[in-house]
């Protein structure tokens, strides 16, 4: 096996769990998540000579998100309902099972773009500008989708806005 292949195998083994988790949050379906993660790794391997010295995980993550979003764009899809599942505060939940069930049902209630923004902002921890770039949206649209998504989850967006402002101040970003 070539050295690059060894590196790719190590990369894939280290990142496939996180990619599957991200894909699961985006799709809500374990098998779709596995397929999406595998496809993302196929494309990452195809581009390995270009991305191995850069941020390979960022490349795989971008491919993954685009694959899932493109799937949503296909004509046959279920549109999310405005009806949220019965709300339960995680601190009151007895265990992770209930928390996970609540989370997936809550994410299912979001529109595909709201869901993608929520997962990219709050699971993948990407700044708004990067989410905008990856989803080919304006930063304003990302802010709006994030606020709307948090509102549907009954979370205040102001706290996230303050967090983003702190991050920008720390990294010297000007908008």
């Amino acid at each position: 096996m070539a050295r690059g292949d060894d590196e790719f195998v190590a990369f894939a083994q280290a990142s496939s769990g996180r990619l599957q988790h991200a894909a699961y949050l985006l799709t809500g379906d374990r098998h779709d998540a596995e397929d999406a993660a595998q496809s993302a790794l196929v494309r990452t391997y195809a581009a390995w000579s270009r991305v191995r010295r850069r941020d390979a995980y960022a490349y795989a993550r971008t491919v993954l998100v685009n694959l899932v979003i493109d799937q949503w764009r296909r004509p046959v899809r279920e549109y999310p309902t405005e009806d949220l599942p019965e709300q339960a505060a995680p601190r009151d939940l007895a265990d992770d099972v209930a928390r996970r069930r609540w989370l997936i049902e809550a994410l299912d209630a979001l529109s595909p773009r709201e869901r993608a923004v929520i997962v990219m902002r709050h699971y993948l921890d990407l700044p708004e500008a990067e989410v905008a770039r990856e989803m080919d949206l304006s930063v304003g649209t990302v802010k709006s989708l994030n606020s709307r998504g948090l509102a549907k989850l009954r979370l205040p967006a102001q706290r996230d806005a303050r967090r983003e402002a702190r991050r920008d101040a720390e990294t010297g970003v000007r908008k």
């Binding site: 996970r100 609540w102 709050h122 699971y123 948090l150």
Partner: peptide, 15 residues
Amino acid sequence: MNDLEELRDALHTPP
């Protein structure tokens, strides 16, 4: 859910 950090915790809960 009433706190952003709790959402983030839930997102990071292993599937």
